[in-house]
């Protein structure tokens, strides 16, 4: 049995698949935080009772986040193909998947950031204002620092979600483990390969979870 697993493993280039999935997840998690985090911060700050309330901006951002979260990823994946071709040059493989994965995760990250910052005691923000911190300093030194452990856990949630999304992308020509599962498991009815891919994905998710949980616990002083 062991021999069979190794055979399949080599045959489908499992290491390559894992590597591709890791790259896709890593890059798109990074990019989605790069864009989603500021959107989340802006949403909290423009909300009623926030640092700089602005109803119009807040409503627009809220609408975009809700809209983004309402679109099923598999549909977003297909709908974004022309856009991805335009900016990356291809809509398949690892590179072609970065765009839909990032865009799919941005609303999630924004909402996550929003919730994280809302959990911070309002009294702490007011105290910081009284201590002479301006809005920019409050975002940088209070929101981001006090919310950091939660954000670390948020990165883990996002990455795990993107493992799932990246697997879905196998259906439209994305690379990685999803591609292997579609090619061998779906088109060739190769149950063994399918099973191995499933186990590998579960392990991958488990590893992400453990690493970030340890990290968050080390950082959190609360």
């Amino acid at each position: 049995m062991f021999k069979q697993i190794i055979e399949v493993w080599n045959n489908v280039q499992m290491f390559n698949g894992i590597w591709e999935t890791v790259v896709m997840v890593f890059v798109s998690t990074f990019l989605s935080f790069l864009i989603g985090l500021p959107i989340g911060i802006l949403t909290v700050c423009t909300d009623k009772g926030g640092l700089f309330p602005c109803k119009v901006v807040n409503k627009i951002l809220g609408f975009i986040i809700n809209l983004g979260r309402a679109i099923p990823f598999i549909i977003l994946l297909v709908a974004l193909i022309p856009f991805t071709r335009l900016i990356i040059g291809t809509s398949i493989g690892v590179r072609g998947m970065i765009v839909p994965l990032t865009i799919g995760a941005i609303p999630f990250v924004a909402r996550l950031t929003e919730n994280t910052f809302r959990e911070i005691d309002k009294g702490v923000i007011e105290a910081s204002q009284c201590l002479g911190l301006n809005n920019f300093q409050i975002i940088l030194k209070v929101y981001l620092v006090e919310g950091f452990p939660s954000l670390i856990r948020g990165i883990s949630l996002t990455a795990i979600m993107l493992v799932g999304y990246s697997a879905m992308s196998g259906s439209v020509g994305g690379g990685g483990l999803g591609n292997i599962a579609i090619q061998y498991g779906y088109y060739l009815f190769d149950r063994t390969t399918m099973l191995i891919v499933v186990v590998v994905i579960i392990l991958l998710v488990g590893i992400i979870q453990v690493i970030f949980e340890i990290l968050a616990r080390l950082i959190d002083k609360k």
Partner: peptide
């Protein structure tokens, strides 16, 4: 003015020294 709030409102992710350092730093 120095304000002491009901419920302390300290920064939980910073130690005592850094809690005192922030108002001076800014």
């Amino acid at each position: 003015i120095g304000v002491v709030f009901q419920g302390y409102n300290l920064l939980m992710q910073r130690n005592v020294w850094n809690n005192l350092d922030i108002p001076l730093r800014v």
